[in-house]
Amino acid sequence: MVPGKTRRFLFSLASLYLLLLAVLAAAAPLVSPYSPTEQFLDRRFHAPGPANFLGTDNFGRDILTRIIYGSRSALLVGIVTVSVALLLGGVIGLAAGMGPPALDSALMLLMDSVLSFPTILLAITIVSFMGYGLVQVMLALGIISSPIFARLIRAETLSIKNEGFIEAARALGTPPVKIVFKHIIPNIMSKVIVQCSLTFAQAVVVESSLSFLGVGIQPPSASWGLMLKDARNYLVQAPWMAIYPGLCLALTVLSFNIIGDYLSERFNPRLGELI
């Protein structure tokens, strides 16, 4: 099924938003009007205006600047989380799918036990072992997200493994390693890419949650979750402190989900069956 016009439009919009976010994050020092940690105590709780486009917070820091810097942590966490999860989950999933049944059972039991913990709880546990901070959060999220990839890749490998073209490849004397890299991985990529975008969204949310709870990115660094945490006490006096970072977080997650949905429709049915 080829997605309809509205879907395509939403997909373009979401991609555009994320592209803009990525450019802003990359060029943060150039585009932000202030420094993210610079405090102007005479300008606390200023409403959005010409000097501070989106207002200032309880320390007089510029909200727009902090949002731009916060997008850096959000995107970085997303990228690293997805990479770690993909690598870990990919190796485990392929091993389970290609290996003997005993290995499959053992690996899947391990993955299921990781999946059985609530995400945030497990993240907090891992982070409290490794210490608070950006790197720890990214590693914890990568580990937590890997079972989803492992399960997906295992299931796809198992179904692709019995396809005719794998048999044909074996009949042509293709070595097993090459079968995995040339015949299995390219044919499961579509589903994996969709999962990447969903995991990215989840990672952004969980990073914000952890920072909100105080176990993620530590102040004075900028993070959307941290900004929401600061805003919590001033919701009535300075609602802009919560609204703008919250909006950014929501839009980012929504965009990744829209892209994920669009791609999963686009890739389904599989390329080969699109005759």
Binding site: A169, L172, G173, T174, P175, K182, H183, P186, I275
Partner: peptide, 24 residues
Amino acid sequence: LRRYRGNKIAMVFQEPAKYLNPAF
């Protein structure tokens, strides 16, 4: 055996649609 397969002995299958890799 792998050195024989495809090299000395090759095989054509029944349903070409299923036996070609759709990704390449």
